[in-house]
């Protein structure tokens, strides 16, 4: 879920840009040579995959996939999601430029956390540990992002309590679906013999 233009107060937007710049700095330092096109292509995959309408009950949701992206990319998740969000803003006007810092941080930082938590499980590589990795990546990625979004909305003022609560709740079905999807993606990559550290 990306926050739109014009919602957050200035200090929040600026803090977002500062944190994202730091993340981008670390992320870009870790990317060299073949990792440049690789990060770009995987970023395109997450961009395209997040446009899928995944059915749940009578409605459908879009996935965040930030936990999965983080688990696979490490700190490179910052530039990867930054670019994806930039294009969402340019092509569809989802999110926007002044909030790009906040939105990137909301998505990418949980991805980095997921990376450190999930990595040992991916290295282990048994079916059980891969499923655990998928579940954890979804929980960390989605709920940490939801917490950031809600906290940012709360910071605007007391009238935003309900908005923030509902924003948080809206993430629950997404987390549930991503737990299943992430696990199958990890199993897929394992079966294909693709290195899980890309």
């Amino acid at each position: 879920m990306h926050i739109s233009e014009g919602v957050l107060p200035g200090w929040c937007l600026i803090t977002g840009w500062v944190l994202t710049s730091a993340g981008l700095y670390v992320g870009l330092r870790s990317i060299n040579g073949r990792k440049i096109p690789r990060t770009a292509l995987l970023s395109a995959v997450f961009f395209v995959a997040s446009l899928i309408h995944v059915p749940i009950g009578v409605t459908s949701v879009h996935l965040l996939l930030n936990g999965l992206a983080g688990a696979l990319l490490g700190w490179a998740v910052f530039p990867a999601l930054f670019v994806a969000l930039l294009f969402q803003a340019l092509l569809f006007q989802f999110g926007g430029i002044t909030v790009l810092g906040v939105n990137t941080f909301n998505m990418a930082f949980p991805g980095v956390v997921a990376y450190y938590v999930v990595r040992p499980l991916l290295r282990k590589g048994t079916t059980g540990s891969l499923i655990a990795a998928g579940v954890l990546a979804a929980l960390i990625g989605v709920f940490l992002a939801a917490t950031f979004v809600s906290a940012e909305l709360m910071s605007i003022g007391s009238s935003f309590t309900k908005t923030a609560e509902l924003a948080f709740l809206a993430h629950i079905p997404v987390a549930a679906i991503e737990m299943v999807i992430n696990s199958f993606v990890f199993l897929y990559l394992k079966k294909s013999g693709i290195p899980l550290e890309v």
Partner: peptide, 18 residues
Amino acid sequence: QTYKTYAYFMGNLLLKSY
């Protein structure tokens, strides 16, 4: 089954993009 299929789409995309 549907979620698994979407996961396969993504796995397939990751693999091909890699």
